[in-house]
């Protein structure tokens, strides 16, 4: 098994490391960087719990190798909070709209919803559904998650 030197930026902080070729970006974030906000669900690209932003684009970190993040900008759910560590607008909206129960899917939902709101400041319910279509939730029934994203988009628009 080959090992490789990588330099990766996660939540605007640069890390240098040596990784074995088979280590996924998901395992690297959690085990090497202790960023355990990104969750391990199915590990084969089905559930979306491991979603992150890869150069700003939402992707599944279990389906990428850590080596493939060399020289890339990664954002994890930890990167969505305010500078002082308090919950960001979207995260606060998830709390206020009761958009989580066990919380397992939440980091992935937040990443997908964040990416949507970056592109579209006033998404329709259908657009929200489309954006979180690849994130499975076994608890909420999705309704409150959609409402939370709508609430966040409203608050973001009001604050502009």
């Amino acid at each position: 098994m080959s090992s490789h030197n990588i330099r990766i930026s996660v939540n605007e902080k640069t890390y240098r490391s040596t990784v074995d070729s088979r280590i996924t970006l998901l395992d690297f974030l959690r085990n090497d960087l202790s960023l355990t906000g990104t969750h391990v669900g199915c590990e084969h690209g089905v559930c979306g719990a491991c979603s992150i932003l890869y150069d700003g684009t939402p992707v599944r970190s279990c389906s990428l190798l850590a080596i493939q993040a060399d020289k890339r900008q990664i954002t994890t759910v930890e990167g969505l909070c305010n500078a002082d560590g308090s919950p960001g607008v979207l995260q606060k909206a998830f709390c206020d709209a009761h958009a989580m129960q066990c919380g397992y899917c939440t980091p992935g939902m937040l990443i997908s919803a964040h990416a949507l709101l970056e592109q579209n400041s006033n998404p329709s319910a259908d657009e929200i559904k489309e954006s979180i279509g690849g994130n499975l939730c076994r608890c909420t029934g999705y309704i409150q998650i959609i409402e939370a994203v709508q609430l966040a988009s409203q608050r973001l628009r009001n604050s502009r």
Binding site: G45, Y54, P58, R60, S63, S112, E130, G134
Partner: peptide
């Protein structure tokens, strides 16, 4: 698939 999988 979904937007996350189509992105890759």
């Amino acid at each position: 698939g979904h937007s996350q999988t189509r992105n890759r």
